[in-house]
Amino acid sequence: MSAGLIILIVVIVLVILLLWGMGAYNALVALRNRVGNGWAQIDVQLKQRADLIPNLVETVKGYATHESEVFTQVTQARAKALSVAGDPTATTADRAQAENALSRTLVNLQATAEAYPQLQANQNFMDLQAQLSALEQKIAYARQFYNDVVLKYNTKIETVPSNIIAGLFRFTQAQYFQTDEADRQVPQVKF
Rank of each mutant, 00 (worst) to 15 (best):
M1C: 05
M1K: 09
G4V: 12
G4E: 14
G4W: 10
G4C: 04
L5N: 14
I6Q: 13
I7T: 14
I12D: 09
L14M: 12
V15D: 06
I16L: 14
L17Q: 09
G21P: 07
G21E: 05
M22K: 10
Y25R: 08
Y25A: 07
N26V: 01
A27N: 14
L28P: 04
L28V: 00
N37H: 07
G38N: 02
W39K: 10
A40G: 08
D43F: 00
V44K: 09
Q45S: 10
L46V: 06
K47I: 00
R49N: 05
A50H: 11
D51S: 04
D51Y: 01
L52T: 06
L56F: 04
G62V: 01
T65L: 03
S68V: 07
E69L: 03
T72A: 13
T72L: 03
Q73T: 08
R78M: 02
A79S: 12
A81V: 00
S83H: 05
D87P: 07
P88R: 07
T91E: 06
T92A: 13
A93R: 12
D94Y: 08
A96C: 02
L109H: 10
Q110H: 14
T112Q: 06
T112H: 08
E114W: 05
E114Y: 11
Y116I: 00
P117H: 05
Q118K: 15
L119Y: 09
F125A: 02
F125L: 00
D127G: 09
L132W: 05
S133F: 02
S133W: 05
L135A: 09
Q137R: 11
A140V: 01
Y146F: 11
N147H: 03
L151M: 14
K152T: 08
Y153Q: 04
N154H: 06
K156D: 10
K156C: 01
P161H: 06
N163Y: 08
I165L: 09
F169R: 10
R170Q: 15
F171P: 02
F171T: 00
A174L: 00
Y176N: 10
Y176S: 04
Q178N: 15
D180F: 00
P187T: 03
Q188H: 11
Q188K: 15
